[in-house]
Design a protein around this nucleic acid. Structure first.
Lengths: 188, 188, 188, 188
DNA sequence: AATGAATGAGGATTCATTCAT
DNA sequence: GATGAATGAATCCTCATTCAT
């Protein structure tokens, strides 16, 4: 029982690591299993097929992200602090793990053909949007949703560039850009 | 001679179409060749291997985009018109062709492991940035580059969402969001 | 465990047979696998690639040959008997199996580009030479090695002709020729 | 017309060279043609198919060998000189060209399935045998043919070893071994 | 719960060969 | 006489997946 959860987590971690090494989903289940230290048959036993394994990994990544956000929001008292926390949460160092980056990029690809992936992505988008809008409302009223939209898109765009160009902007600078945009929105 | 160019273009178009149908690079060269109406051996004859074929397709997409941008800039007289043209050029209907979208998403994936892809992506990023900064300079002076950075990232982020969620914002609305951000930057 | 050894041996036997049917290494792994009654994937699973499979087959042939030689030497008491046994061991009927002949001919070809094959061939040459020289020493002293050299080369040459020309000399006649040369060497 | 002969010879030389570089017949006609500086289609035009091209190359090698033998015999006056010339002709430096060696090894392979190759090989064997026997007759009478058989086989066997082990015996030493055997036969 | 053994299906790539020009 | 263009047919090898144990 506990063993099952443990094995699954091992496999999920191995998946993220393996994807990170190749940069793509072209990783054999055999390789993932080897990293996890189990047989590939076990991966099928627990997840059914390869795509399910990848989705589980993505779900895991999103959950960790959610926890980060919750933790950050928990210690934020004012709307301004909330916004700051929300934005910074997207550029934490854990987001720049090779495996996590690769998972995200492939997630975008998968979202085009897999309903499950698309659904998951929508949820992430909606949650980010709603979090931002919620924090913005006291400050901007009706404009909240619209501003949240622009901010969240910019977050993804900046993440994309930072992730694909490690020599470029640092996570801190990346967050700073979004915060700058926020400042301008509030000033407007 | 002319035949070679023609065949190559056929294959490139077929590649984009095929990628669009699957949403991923998991398309057999055989399928691409069939769409192009030639043998798969010919694809190898002309491009060497599958990755080269895909890169050629991506290069083709970027070239068309460049042409669009140039054409749009050619009829813009003021800095404001320039910015408007640059932003709108990213949301033209051709960008929302299934094949083009799929190519972009997979391009992000490929950029993680293929030097050639990464190089190509950098060039695109740099050019967009430089175009925006150039148009901004007369209006914002020193701030131009920094603003351009935020705008270009937002362009990608908004494109990502629009592309992956056809039911969401329309291309026009997408462009409008970026223009809104521009307005706020200029007002600041 | 035992299954692995068994399957490998099946595949090796099938390889020898298949090579014998074509006379060359231009046999598909698929055909070999079919003869062995397993899937071609299994052949790759166990041997890695086609060349390794062929080398395993050649190693197998050489091992059987070694065993034949050992068995023959075991019942030989005098140097003369030893020499007779050694020479005859090279012309046993098992050497004239189509597959074995084909394997040898292709072995010579492979030896030109495969280090593993060349190494294997050297070992065979060295062992034959040393066996002959050892048996000759009591009879010829210092001349042993030099005589062994001439005898072993002649063995290969005569085998070559007998193998490629089944209508020519019989194995017995072939052995007789070498024994004749031995007689002359000893008489000298 | 003269052009045809020239082109054919170019292709034959290229074949021998190409085979020498790989050590096997696994050379593409394209590569051979490139070495020859012509199109691969031309090779087919002149030779019909790949095997015919290889056979032509082998025929060419055998002809040169024949010429060497004739030339050597032409200046030999006594039977002893004849034998010496015949034996040495088999170990001339031209026999140790990589391409020539590779051609021989592959010739043995081809002889197993190609009638044309087998026929060619028989002719070579028969001619060597007859040449040796002819030279031996004045010295050994009835024994000539039998001795010639042993010598010719030894020639092939020693060539095989020298060819496959360039670090081993030199051509001179190789010839010396056969001459030593000849001496013992004559002494017997 | 866990795996070793086995495979079907497929896919990239190669190459001898053809043929119109 | 000579070739560029084109392809059909293979073949090696991989891998997700299954299943008996």
């Amino acid at each position: 029982m506990g063993a099952e959860i443990q094995r699954k987590q091992q496999l999920i971690n191995a998946t993220i690591q393996a994807i990170g090494e190749t940069g793509s989903l072209d990783v054999t289940v055999g390789k993932i299993a080897k990293i996890a230290g189990v047989s590939s048959a076990l991966a099928f036993h627990y997840f059914g097929d390869k795509e399910a394994l990848f989705l589980a990994a993505m779900r895991d990544i999103l959950q960790r992200y959610s926890r980060d956000v919750s933790a950050a929001l928990a210690v934020a008292d004012t709307p301004e602090q909330r916004l700051d926390a929300l934005i910074r949460a997207n550029f934490g160092t854990s987001h720049f793990d090779r495996g996590v980056i690769a998972a995200w990029m492939n997630f975008y690809v998968l979202a085009q053909r897999s309903d499950a992936a698309r659904r998951l992505l929508r949820i992430y988008h909606a949650r980010l949007l709603s979090n931002l809008a919620h924090a913005l409302r006291p400050l901007t009223g009706d404009q909240a949703r619209s501003i949240a939209l622009r901010l969240s898109a910019q977050i993804d765009g900046i993440y994309l560039r930072a992730a694909l160009n490690p020599a470029g902007a640092s996570p801190e600078e990346a967050a700073a850009q979004v915060l700058a945009t926020l400042k301008r929105e509030l000033a407007f």
